[in-house]
Amino acid sequence: MIVTGGSRGLGLVLVQRLADAGYRAVAIARKETNPLLSAIDDAAGAIEFVPFDLGDIAGIPALVQRLRKSFGPIHGLVNNAAVQFHGALALMPSAQIEQLVRLNTLSPIVLTKYVVRAMMADGGGRIVNVASIIGTTGYSGLAAYGATKASMIGFTRSLAREVGPMGVTVNAVAPGFMATDMTDALGDDQRRQIERRSALRRLPTIEDVAETVLFLLGDAATSITGTVVTVDAGNTA
């Protein structure tokens, strides 16, 4: 199981849960973090770390070749790595917009291209794309980010149709705002407002979202493909 952005936030919790569930989890990220290092220590060989800058699009084919050589057939891919820049589009530097599209859209599509054909050659596999409720609902200051997350939903639906006949499922998970490094940028007022507007009067936890991804990767989700599972404590209900 490959998890991009596996060194912190949702990705880190996910590799830990995958290891707990008996999978071998490979975390891909630019740098190790201390929490990832201690997770690797605790997991006794079930978690591996592969350093890679996912913005290096030209390096992706060699990365996938290396992953297959080192770890064998790839059963699952979780496209989780993403960046979020918050701010008025009218003032956002074009370089930031480009980075958002590169890391949140281009990189996962190219990575999936190389992983999915290996999955097809091996007879099947699971792909989960981490989108966001911001891909389908609006939030001021996240226009470019929202565009990249909407793109992952369109990608999910069409790819599911394309590779379904070869035994590969493709789904997306759309989290609402969670308490992660990514949402630390939100002020307390914004956070309380989001909680107030959610049916369950709270934010979903990272663990809630990780469990949903785990479900989609597991045997119970064999007949689920091309769909988006929203985990937002009812924020968009």
Partner: peptide, 18 residues
């Protein structure tokens, strides 16, 4: 085209080139 993609993936494994 999916079968051709599988051939390219298998040949990459066998020959080391894509």
């Amino acid at each position: 085209s999916l079968c051709l993609a599988i051939i390219v993936a298998r040949l990459e494994d066998r020959l080391g080139v894509d």
